[in-house]
Design a protein around this nucleic acid. Sequence first.
DNA 1: CGACTAATTGAGTCGCTTCAATAAGCGTGG
DNA 2: CCACGCTTATTGAAGCGACTCAATTAGTCG
Lengths: 258, 258
Amino acid sequence: MAAPPPPPPAPPQRRLRIVAAPAACEGCAVQSRAICSALPPEERDVLGRMGRTQTLARGATLMWEGDEARVVANVLAGVLKLSISTSDGREQILGVAYPSDFVGRPYAAAMPYQVTALTDARVCVFPKAAFDRFAREHPALEHLLLERTLTDLDRAHAQLLDLGRKSAGERLASFLIELSERLVQEECSPAPMRGKPQPLDRFELPLDRQQIGDLLGLAIETVSRHFQKMKAAGVIELVGRRGIHVLDRAALRRMAGF
Amino acid sequence: MAAPPPPPPAPPQRRLRIVAAPAACEGCAVQSRAICSALPPEERDVLGRMGRTQTLARGATLMWEGDEARVVANVLAGVLKLSISTSDGREQILGVAYPSDFVGRPYAAAMPYQVTALTDARVCVFPKAAFDRFAREHPALEHLLLERTLTDLDRAHAQLLDLGRKSAGERLASFLIELSERLVQEECSPAPMRGKPQPLDRFELPLDRQQIGDLLGLAIETVSRHFQKMKAAGVIELVGRRGIHVLDRAALRRMAGF
DNA sequence: CGACTAATTGAGTCGCTTCAATAAGCGTGG
DNA sequence: CCACGCTTATTGAAGCGACTCAATTAGTCG
């Protein structure tokens, strides 16, 4: 499906802005949902003192694939993408990180993927060496990290099925369903939601068409064509460039092949 | 790429044979490499007493996708596949497990994937509830489990690039390289190898053509055609149905797009 | 209200799949 | 050891889905 070698221009990544400030955990917007929540307050503050808040402009890269892994981070605000590329520039987006998500690769020397801001973002960055040491000494933290990693693995597995065995239309439907279900938790930030996690019927795509293509292994035109097809079928409505309105969730599910 | 609905016959999985015996860790072929190695001998034996050895005939399924997750296991001998499927029967192989690998999904209620023996195999099975409890109380075990899960995630990410952005020929080349590098460690079982892990130039495929297709998201004919193409190019030699002889590893690497 | 960027739409091509035989492996029993 | 029969792999022909290239249209921001 992918054409062997479409030589790409060097990615025009913007440079990241560092607006560091001593991390204060009190008042942290994600303290109840980030991995830090595994720790008792005093321990959490010890970890917090190791970190610093950093601001990322849209398009800025926080970690580079193949680089020495120097840091790990919690996402405080905004949306980031994790991605890897072939040497000739084809890119695959591995996943998207939202506030309270953890990014980076503990216990490895090199970063296996790149982390880039899709929107302006804020992250809480920890030096990896210190974080690794701290984590090894705090089983509760490692446990939560393990749970998260297992969930990430489950998600990667689901995406493998999408990319390996599903058609473009099915991938797009899966993507919209997954997104609408995940965005709920991110929207009502600190508020513990009452009732079951109701998927959103109206939301904004954190990705543009090209990025959706990079996530689903499709060309931008294919993404566009299938969006139009869904719209024509009355399954979704397209609101401007980024807006999605799910009109018929059952049909969307059916299209996703579950 | 995948045709939307090729209705499949019910998978003719053979039933598994249970030849349980009280697990004795002493003499265990994988004790130095399995997750149990994270524990001191006494603790390891406590865990060992929770487990039982089970024999799987080729084709037998140890865990079913969607079923309640009742067990986790260490692979003692043989090769297993992890896979998920769409409701209409298209299958994606997520990965392959060798001796000393851990399979199963700790801390979740349902199995996210299916585990099936590709060859006759032996596994050391633990009741999941007891294993989860034990793991939570043994940080050293959880740490190793975390490291393994992170490695699995790295591998899944690499496969996402393969499926999303690489051509059939590139996927097949990646597959052969990965396999030849991973088999080394499995071959010289308990012996700590001297020197750097030299990839194997001659080896047997643990998968048939169909399974390679299910792993790489390709049709069986495509797998076959590209094998023939590589053979014609003098990059590999095909020895019977399962044998591979890598003649030009550099070329193979080049074909894989790294 | 422009001017730029992102998204859509159209036409044509190509790689992979599908369907259909044919050939090769491999285990079995004579 | 070889012939038989089943399974697995290979090869061929044809079709289709997704890709590429090329305009055109729609959004967004100054």
